[in-house]
Design a binder for these strands. Sequence first.
DNA 1: CTGGATCCCTATCGATACTG
DNA 2: CAGTATCGATAGGGATCCAG
Lengths: 121, 121
Amino acid sequence: MNDRAGDVLEHIDAEACRRFQVAAELAGQKWTAAVLLSLARGAGRFTEVRHTVSGISDRMLSARLRDLERQGLVVRQVTPSVPVQIRYELSESGWQLIRALAPLVDWGQRWMQDDPAADAR
Amino acid sequence: MNDRAGDVLEHIDAEACRRFQVAAELAGQKWTAAVLLSLARGAGRFTEVRHTVSGISDRMLSARLRDLERQGLVVRQVTPSVPVQIRYELSESGWQLIRALAPLVDWGQRWMQDDPAADAR
DNA sequence: CTGGATCCCTATCGATACTG
DNA sequence: CAGTATCGATAGGGATCCAG
């Protein structure tokens, strides 16, 4: 612990904290991270994502994709062929979110204790 | 979108994703961010935290502090006076978490849309 | 002051079945 | 293929009261 966190804290006022809260809840919601990562790695079709995110149900995937689309993190493109093709991809903000999340992953590697309760999830 | 996220993704294997998931759930849990921030800003006593985190109940604050302590993010110190004084402070990993969260805060400032559902929370 | 214990309600999630 | 509808289980969280 060499430096204080003052340089960090000065950016974090109440409003920032609120926004952070929402962002963290979004990212922390079950399956969201996995779906985001799946898309980042190239999955585009509903079925592709479902297949790369093992264990997710149609219902949850559908819900998460809708949430992500609503927040503008994911773009849903419909190609009017027969049958219609749906493709999801990360938006700019989606990519940026993944980048913003990277330090958190590093933190996890370094500091996180194994959580017994995690097995239940 | 100048750069791809390949440099980010190569750090994110399945294990990292799992850790990330747990970290995100931890940070995304209701009140956790606010409590962390409160401590970072100098609150130490139970009542101080409760006062700076408006709207939190005793029960929740107690629960979150226990979680955080269990995860090693917060250290609980008991001073045996009459009455006993309890003081919470961030551990090293707690401070590092706050630093790791900073990019997410920035992301929120930059990209996050106002979420109507946030009002309900 | 610092919580623990209890009650209860709601949101969330999984499973299953069904549709354009 | 790409979802939606419905049901039931369960865990999270608020309110309130109580205790060391």
